[in-house]
Design a protein around this nucleic acid. Structure first.
Length: 866
RNA sequence: GCCGGGGUGGCGGAACUGGUAGACGCGCCGGACUCAAAAUCCGGUUCUGGCAACAGAGUGCGGGUUCGAUUCCCGCCCCCGGCACCA
């Protein structure tokens, strides 16, 4: 009779049923109500981690909720299979990256399947398959034709010992991760994609992405960084030094020029000045990342060269400064130390003149050239001073007058500048998509003809950390020039893995098409209705995917302007960290699963010991799950122990999807207990006499209360799943309803009909989160069809009606009483009732009532004073 | 350094449009069942004072707007994400 809840039995059975029924196959030609639900595909690192589990559970809840409403949903899965970790694994274990990657994919696919996700596995793809990456190559060639792809030099991190280019991640405190050698900046030729051509559109269409989080749109807008200003030319001995500035109004305050160490004028100065050459060399150490450059100590050197101020004719010294970036604007700035914080610090450090040219009109403290104040950069409530003919003008008038004067002399003009830079896609790495170019001694760089695609990456190489294994692979490199037929060399750089992930979502609908990159199915399914993934991708991946989509649109391959209609950025998964410190200060980290915590009578943590030896361990805070802190919890282990439904339930219940989630095994047990309780509750109900048909008119007040709770829950959960994506509160509401039904003890068939209605609703409301559990119970409740076909519970508005509502009575904003009233009671009635309350009267003694605020159905606030 | 986000009981979180702060869960305390333990069930649980009724305080810190602020505004502190070669 009383069958215990046993996920090990019901979960495989439910999954088998869905597989047999091909329940998750999405149609090739979707109808109008079809929905494309996409998760960011995983990098096949070896094991599914909690972040993946959380991501795909969120997507699965959305998918299954819509499926139950009868909509066709495409939920695909694939593998972001190229990348650095495979090469690192190869270095560590001597296994070819291809084998390591494909083994990982096989393992992780099984793990995903054990979680019961409603994925259409027929559409699976991996970016390391030639059938996928040939289309990277094909589109790259189209971009070359269109002039969107081009070649120029770029700066990389160079490890002088390993003779290899390092990723920013591989530069630790300015040194190579394996060799410890001081990293150098090096200029090498690379291929670029002209994303800046789309800068304006990428910025402007952000406004249309109304269902994206505001913060992601803000980050992207700032990243693109459109600024309006002017370019100004400063004549010098050999030409003109061009700069971009957003503050041409401060031109009269420019006291020196600063150029990047890589600027041509810097190189020229170095020819005759060994100290300048040495300074430039010293700037070439350290990594290329912006964070590193922005936080390094500001240093500079005078080149001895000068440039002429375009309006005053003054000679300004040209300095080289390490805070000027060659990659932004012109690689040179006009320094106005009085009104730019970095120039101010630099000028004070090197004793350069500071000339105030804007003054506050709003009573700010007086200008002081030794102390920086924020108003020095203000555009409002300021006027120009010490600027000759321009004195007294405000920001806009000064801007216009000065730029007009420059234009007249041909030494400047208005201009828009973007912070966004073109996308360098060349990587000096093995495990990536080969760039389809052949270098011919006579013809130069020749694109691989379309009929010779794909350029297949050899899969049997094992990198050792130095140089590029591809460059050493003669079988790959040696080829004939497609142009002249003479011996030539293949390009050995591969593409940035962001290329692979910029369009994979367009390939799922047509992953079996060997003739074309995308087809009518892609055009029918795009755009993605819902995209879900980590907030860490808020800028780069999402921006590149948007760009790539626009390029494909302009090449006539797709019709959409934007790839992702709605975006949900999930938070990270965190866990406690525990450690012991040895006498040398070295920390050993212990997994939270091995630690026992002791608590005091109030439940506060007082001590913790390692279960293995009973000796104390220290608490290291709550941090992102990571190998380095040994605080990762393996979802597979949790699934093994509690079943997929419990793990899914906990991860959706413990935090809202956009926030970080603290993993807690005690919390997982809470979810497990809830499922067990509901399971037993429903079985107890099934053991009783069968219910009568539901007859709302004949119910007593207890039955009406129970039924109202059921329908309030249907309303809340539908809204939380469908509109708010607030899964944690939906689950809380289901738990509340289950608690209410547990207390309701019907004495008759009519009451049991309310219970039956309630349980059938709860099982279906829970189905998106705990599909196996709901599938099993739905069958036990007597239904043949799959839970996916069960339909979403329907709200009965009549069941929500209430006789009485509780209102709060406040005196001066403090709650002093509660009153019951009919929901439609009028103001005067409610006010009279409120004033009559004993505790309210006590607080009115000796006071005068000034005002009474009545918020219908909610509260009464009586404002008094003495 | 720059850009973005967050901070509410012992803990995770709730409060959706300015209207009862702490739903739901964890932990903890007490009780039932048991020879005992586990499991399960019942009750309590923001803090301070009080037997209680109740009173006072309270949403990172300091100010402001409002009858009323976790919610809006100004200034600060701390933590987290991104910074173009990790994905």
């Amino acid at each position: 009779m009383n069958q215990p809840y046993n996920p090990a039995e019901i979960e495989p059975a439910a999954r088998q049923r869905w597989v047999d029924e091909q329940a998750f196959r999405a149609p090739d030609q979707p109808g109008d109500d079809a929905f494309y639900c996409l998760s960011m595909f995983p990098y096949p690192s070896g094991h599914l981690h909690m972040g993946h589990m959380r991501n795909y559970t969120i997507a699965d809840v959305i998918t299954r909720h819509l499926r139950m409403q009868g909509r066709a949903v495409l939920q695909p899965m694939g593998w972001d299979a190229f990348g650095l970790p495979a090469e690192n694994a190869a270095i560590a274990r001597g296994v070819p990256p291809a084998k390591w990657t494909r083994d990982n994919i096989a393992h992780m696919r099984g793990q995903l399947q054990d979680l019961g996700f409603a994925i259409d596995w027929q559409r699976e793809l991996a970016t390391c398959d030639p059938e996928y990456y040939r289309w990277n190559q094909w589109l790259f060639l189209k971009m070359l034709e269109a002039g969107i792809a081009y070649k120029k030099t770029g700066t990389v991190n160079w490890d002088p010992v390993d003779q290899t280019v390092l990723a920013n991640e591989q530069v630790i405190d300015g040194r190579g991760w394996r060799t410890g050698a001081e990293v150098e900046k090096r200029e090498i030729p690379m291929y670029y994609l002209a994303i800046t051509r789309y800068a304006d559109e990428l910025l402007e269409s952000l406004d249309g992405l109304e269902e994206w989080p505001e913060r992601v749109r803000a980050m992207q807008a700032n990243w693109i960084g459109k600024s309006t200003g002017a370019e100004v030319e400063f004549p010098h001995a050999d030409g003109r030094l061009k700069v971009f500035t957003t503050r041409p109004d401060t031109l009269m305050g420019a006291t020196y020029m600063a150029v990047a160490p890589e600027h041509p004028l810097a190189r020229k100065a170095a020819e005759t000045r060994p100290d300048v050459a040495e300074f430039i060399r010293s700037c070439a150490t350290g990594g290329v990342s912006e964070a590193e450059i922005a936080t390094q100590e500001k240093r500079g050197i005078d080149t001895g060269l000068t440039a002429t101020h375009p309006l005053t004719g003054d000679e300004l010294p040209i300095w080289i400064a390490n805070y000027v970036l060659m990659g932004y604007g012109e690689g040179a700035v006009m320094a106005v130390p009085a009104h730019d914080e970095r120039d101010f610090a630099f000028a004070n450090q090197y004793g350069l003149p500071i000339r105030q040219v804007i003054a506050s009109t709003e009573g700010e403290p007086a200008y002081d050239d030794t102390t920086w104040q924020d108003w020095y950069t203000a555009k409002e409530n300021v006027r120009l001073v010490h600027s000759g003919a321009y004195d007294g003008l405000d920001f806009q008038a000064g801007f216009d007058a000065i730029v007009d004067a420059l234009e007249e002399k041909g030494l400047g003009r208005r201009r828009v500048q973007f912070r966004l830079r073109d996308w360098g896609i060349s990587r000096q790495r093995y495990w990536g998509c080969p760039i389809p170019i052949i270098h011919c001694p006579s013809c130069g760089d020749v694109p691989v003809p379309e009929d010779q695609l794909p350029v297949v990456l050899p899969e049997d190489l094992v990198p050792d950390g130095s140089g590029s294994p591809l460059a050493r692979c003669e079988a790959f490199v040696a080829c004939d020039c497609p142009n002249c037929g003479r011996p030539a060399r293949r390009e050995t750089d591969t593409m940035d893995t962001f290329v692979d992930s910029s369009w994979y979502f367009m390939r799922y609908p047509c992953s079996d098409n060997h003739e074309a990159m995308v087809d009518a199915r892609t055009r029918a399914w795009m755009p993605v209705d819902q995209y879900i993934g980590g907030i860490e991708h808020a800028i780069l991946h999402l921006l590149y995917a948007r760009f790539w989509t626009k390029v494909m649109r302009d090449l006539g391959l797709v019709e959409v302007d934007e790839p992702f209609q709605r975006l949900l950025t999930q938070g990270m998964v965190l866990a406690e960290t525990w450690y012991r410190e040895d006498t040398n200060g070295r920390k050993t980290w212990f997994n939270p699963a091995e630690v026992d915590v002791e608590r005091d009578a109030k439940g506060r943590m007082v001590a913790a010991v390692l279960a293995g030896d009973g000796q104390p361990v220290e608490f290291g805070g709550i941090e992102k799950m990571a190998k380095s802190k040994n605080n990762g919890v393996d979802p597979a282990v949790m699934v093994e122990q509690y079943g997929a439904d419990t793990v899914r339930l906990f991860s959706m219940f413990a935090a809202p999807p956009e926030q970080s989630l603290e993993w807690s095994e005690a919390g997982v047990e809470g979810s497990w207990r809830f499922l067990k309780r509901l399971w037993n509750q429903i079985h107890a109900h099934l053991d009783e006499a069968p219910p009568a048909a539901l007859a709302p008119a004949a119910l007593d007040s207890q039955a009406l209360d129970a039924r109202r709770k059921v329908h309030e829950t249907i309303k809340k959960v539908s809204d939380d799943f469908g509109r708010r994506y607030s899964f944690n509160t939906a689950i809380a509401a289901i738990m509340e309803c289950s608690n209410v039904l547990a207390k309701y003890q019907p004495g008759d068939d009519a009451g049991r009909a309310v219970l039956r209605e309630g349980f059938e609703a709860l099982v279906r409301l829970l189905a998106p989160v705990t599909p196996h559990f709901s599938q099993a119970l739905w069958q036990k409740l007597g239904h043949q069809a799959s839970i996916l076909e069960a339909g979403w519970p329907v709200l009965d508005e009549n069941a929500l009606a209430q006789q009485q509502v509780t209102l709060v009575v406040q005196v001066n904003g403090k709650v002093r009483a509660r009153i019951e009233a009919a929901p439609d009671a009028d103001r005067d009635q409610v006010q009279a009732l409120a004033l009559a309350q004993e505790n309210v009267q006590r607080h009115l003694e000796g006071m005068t009532v000034r005002k009474v605020i009545v918020v219908p159905g909610k509260l009464v606030n009586i404002v008094v004073s003495s």
